[in-house]
Design a protein around this nucleic acid. Structure first.
Lengths: 369, 369
DNA sequence: CTGAAAGCGCTTACAG
DNA sequence: CTGAAAGCGCTTACAG
C-alpha cells in the first residue's frame, strides 16, 4: 500500500536549508579555541592535564557559544550517564506512592541529578510485558542508578535489573511489600507493612476490641504475610479473624470510592465488627464519611485505624488514627545509600534495611465499651 | 586536593576482565547472518529493500541472540527517538495534575511509546534555573514529542521548547492556566479555569448568595483573570467582592492542610460569607470537615463549591458540589493532536483548544435563606 | 537486492 | 601539556 507523500511546501524546504540548526558541537568550540577536540574535551570535563590558560579560553568560548555537551553522544562513547538516576514505579497513585516519589525526586534533583520517572500511569500493573518494556526503556537510558519501587513488580523484572547492575549500574529497591526483599543483590529498603497491620490490630486489641475487620487496598482480599501477622496478633488475645470481615477489593487503587463501597457493604452486615483496619487513609476517610452520613458514630460505635498517615488523616471528619508509612525515612535511606555508592565508592555487600510504621493516635478509635 | 584512590580489589579487576558484558550488537547479528550491517539494519527496521529470505534469517537470528537496537546509538545517528514522548510538568501533586499525567501516560504507553516524566517532585516550582534544567534534561533525550503542562512554567522555558520544535520535535502544551495560551506556536489545550470560577460564582448567585468568599490554592491570593471573571459575574448580580473574603495561601499545594487552616481562619471571621468557592476538592473536603466538627452546618449555614471533581468529592462528609476540570478531554485532545502530527503528518497551523469545566451538583450548596 | 563507507558528537587510551 | 586516531552502535546516502 503506497502512501502518497505530498511534496513539502516551498517555505519549509527553504527553512530547512537556511537553518540547519547546527547546534554548536565540541568540534566548533575546539576550532574556535584553536585546540584539538581532545584538549577541548579535557578542559570541559576537567579530566586530563590542560594548561590553565587554554582551559580558561575553552571554557569561556564554550560559554559564549552556548555549548553544552550532547549527553547522547557522551553516553555512546562513555557508557553511563553519570548525572541521571531513573525512578521505576508501576503506579502513580494519589497517595503514598506518589508522595514517596516526590520526596526522592526532589532530593535527587537538588543534588543535581536528572530524575525521570518511568511509570505506567495507573493501569496494567499486572501485565508483565508492560513491566518489562518499562524497565527496558529505563535501562536503555543508561542512568547511573535506578531506584525501583518494587511493590507489584514481577520477579522477571529483576533479571534486566541484575544485568544493569552487572554492567556497573547501581540499583536500589524500596517497597511496601510483605516484608520480603526483592530477588536481587542490591541495597534494599523495605517497609514492614505486615507488621504495621499487626501493630494496628494490637492497638485495637488493647483497647478491648475483639471483633476486627480488615480492608486491604490493592489486593483482592487481605492475604499473605499481612493477613498472617494480623492473625497472629489476634491469636495472642484469643480473638479469631472472621472471614466475612476480610473485605474484598478489586485490586485497583481507587481509595475514596473503595472506602465508600466498603461502608455500604459494612452497613449491610448482619453482625458488624467493632473495629476495622483500612489500608489507606483516603479510603478510610471516605469510609468514615459515608458511615457518618449513615448515622454510624465513629469512634463510639466503630473504631477505625487508617494507614499511611496521608495528608487527609488529620483533617478527615473524624481525624484518623493511623499507622504511618515511613516515606521520609525511605527517601532518606535511598539518598544515603546512593551517596555512599557514588561518592564514597562503597562497593561492599548490599545493605538491607527494614523500616517499621508506628501508630499515630488521633480520634477515630475508642475503647470497646 | 588530591583524592587517593584505593586500588580495586582483585576479584573486581578479574570480573571486569571475565565479563566484558558485551551486549549483542548489530554487527554480531550481521556476522551471524552473514550479511553486512547495512542489510541487517534494513531487515530490522524494514526500511530498505531486503529479500524476504535474508530478512527472515536476520530477524530470527536477532531474536535468538537477544538483540535489540541500542536506542542511544540509534539516536546519535538518527536524530530523534521516534517512540518516546516526554512529559514535562513542574509538580507532582496528589490531585488533578497527577491524575492528568496518569491518563496521558497510560494512553501513550498503550500506544507503544516510552513516556518518562520530567518533574521536580514538589518544591522549587518558581525557581527558573530548576525549570530550565528540567527541560534541558528532557530535550537532551530527543523525544519525538514533548507534552508540557504549562501551569507555573516560566516564559523562559518556552525558548528551548521552541528550538526543540524548530529541530523537528513536536510540542503540545496543556494547562489549567488563566486562559492564556503559552508563548509558543504549538498545539495547545487550555482549561479555561477563570471561567470555571465565574461559573461557580454564578451558580451561587443564582441560589441567592451575595456574600461569596474565594480561596485559590497555589497562589498567594486570588488574582488575575480568575479574580476578574468572578468579579464580573458578581457585578452582574450587584454583589461586591469583599477583600477580606479573598483568602490567602502560601503558594504551596498542601490541599488538606490548607483547607483546615482556611476553616480555622473562617471561624474567626467577624462577618462570614454565606458561600465560598475553594479551588480544590481535597482542600474543600478538609475545610468542610473542620467546619463540621466546629458545628458549622454545610450547606445550611454555608454553601461550598469545590473544584476539580476529585476522587474525594462524592465521598466527603457532605458530598461536594464542584466544578469539574476536564482531565479526560485534555488527555484525549493531547493524544488526538499527537496522532494527527505523527500518523497523519499534519503540519498545518497549531491548534488551540479551550475547554470549560462544568458544575457538578452534589450536596454542599443550598439556596440562601 | 546488497555492502563499503561516512557520519552522528563525544571520550579516551596512546604517542608525542 | 597537546593532538591524531580509534571507537561507542547504529543509520543512511550512495554505488554497485
Amino acid at each position: 500500500m503506497g502512501i502518497i507523500q505530498t511534496p513539502k511546501p516551498v517555505w519549509e524546504i527553504f527553512e530547512t536549508m537556511i537553518s540547519p540548526r547546527k547546534t554548536v558541537t565540541l568540534a566548533d568550540v575546539a576550532r574556535a579555541a584553536n585546540v584539538s577536540k581532545t584538549t577541548a574535551s579535557h578542559a570541559l570535563s576537567g579530566k586530563g592535564y590542560v594548561s590553565s590558560a587554554t582551559r580558561e579560553s575553552v571554557l569561556r568560548l564554550a560559554d559564549e557559544m552556548g555549548f553544552s555537551v550532547d549527553p547522547i553522544a557522551r553516553l555512546l562513547s562513555n557508557g553511563r550517564c553519570e548525572n541521571t538516576v531513573g525512578l521505576y514505579t508501576l503506579d502513580l497513585d494519589l497517595s503514598q506512592r506518589t508522595r514517596q516519589l516526590q520526596l526522592i525526586q526532589a532530593q535527587l534533583n537538588d543534588m543535581g541529578y536528572s530524575v525521570p520517572i518511568y511509570a505506567y500511569g495507573y493501569r496494567g500493573r499486572d501485565d508483565l510485558s508492560v513491566q518489562m518494556e518499562l524497565v527496558s526503556g529505563l535501562i536503555a537510558q543508561r542512568p547511573a542508578a535506578i531506584v525501583c519501587n518494587m511493590s507489584g513488580v514481577r520477579k522477571e523484572v529483576f533479571e534486566p535489573l541484575r544485568r544493569f547492575q552487572a554492567d556497573g549500574g547501581i540499583v536500589i529497591c524500596y517497597g511496601y511489600g510483605y516484608g520480603e526483599f526483592a530477588p536481587i543483590e542490591c541495597d534494599q529498603i523495605i517497609y514492614a507493612e505486615p507488621e504495621s497491620f499487626a501493630c494496628a490490630a494490637r492497638y485495637l486489641l488493647e483497647l478491648g476490641h475483639r471483633e476486627i475487620g480488615l480492608f486491604s487496598v490493592g489486593h483482592r482480599k487481605p492475604q499473605g504475610a499481612m493477613l498472617e501477622s494480623v492473625r497472629d496478633a489476634m491469636r495472642e488475645f484469643g480473638a479469631p479473624l472472621r472471614d466475612e470481615w476480610l473485605f474484598e477489593n478489586d485490586g485497583l487503587l481507587r481509595y475514596e470510592e473503595d472506602g465508600h463501597r466498603l461502608a455500604n457493604h459494612f452497613l449491610t452486615l448482619e453482625k458488624r465488627p467493632s473495629a476495622v483496619i483500612v489500608a489507606n487513609d483516603y479510603c478510610a476517610a471516605a469510609f468514615v464519611a459515608t458511615l457518618t452520613r449513615a448515622g454510624v458514630r465513629v469512634p463510639q460505635e466503630l473504631s477505625v485505624v487508617g494507614h499511611d498517615n496521608d495528608a487527609i488523616a488529620p483533617y478527615a471528619v473524624v481525624p484518623l488514627t493511623t499507622v504511618s508509612a515511613p516515606v521520609e525515612e525511605i527517601a532518606e535511606k535511598v539518598i544515603e545509600m546512593l551517596q555512599s555508592r557514588v561518592l564514597r565508592n562503597y562497593s561492599g555487600a548490599p545493605r538491607k534495611i527494614l523500616l517499621r510504621g508506628e501508630i499515630i493516635q488521633r480520634q477515630s478509635c475508642a475503647p470497646k465499651n
